[in-house]
Amino acid sequence: MSREPDITALPEPAEPRAENAPVPIWIFTVSFVALFWAMLYFDQRGAWFNPQVYAPYKSLSHLQSFQPPTGGPNLERGRSVYENVCALCHNTDGAGKPNQAPTFIGSEWVLGNPARLIRIPIHGLTGPITVKGESWNLNMAAMGAALSDEDLAAVLTYMRQSWGNKASPITEEQVKAVRAETGNRSQPWTADELKPFE
């Protein structure tokens, strides 16, 4: 290493300097074309700074056109809630399980008065009960107590309109009304207590 030539003794090249060649015109052409393309690109995909529009939607109206159709009961929602909350005991096809839970298919409790039906999941049901001529005497927990009003409405609607059942949908307002009326209650219902609501 000590035998390498001492660079500091060698003359150093001069500092660089720049000449003044003009910028070729085609660079400007390319730039303008590129700028134009960039503006088109943003116009197509940028949704003009709208905070609600995410790719792949191209604009607010494009996004709006993909909103799921509402109007009418949300059976899909009801079905999903049903399969998570009720199906364990009442079975996915609503037929119930022997010694576990009664059927919903053609059940007068499901197809009857909404006020009576809504109360059952909110507080639970206990004691003897007759469903489609069969007697049951079990305990149902308040499986719907934790559900929101719209989820409960959706699942009850689903039960009333599936598997051959044909009854009117249950609305969120009906559920709200029942909750308001029975707010203080903590005990499960018995069949007798539900008689007034037939």
């Binding site: 090249p13 001069a14 300097r17 720049a18 000449e19 003044n20 660079i27």
Partner: peptide, 13 residues
């Protein structure tokens, strides 16, 4: 430019 001893082609570019 310094080490090849050539000026930079274009200041404008």
């Amino acid at each position: 430019p310094k080490l090849t001893n050539r000026p930079l082609h274009s200041r404008h570019l």
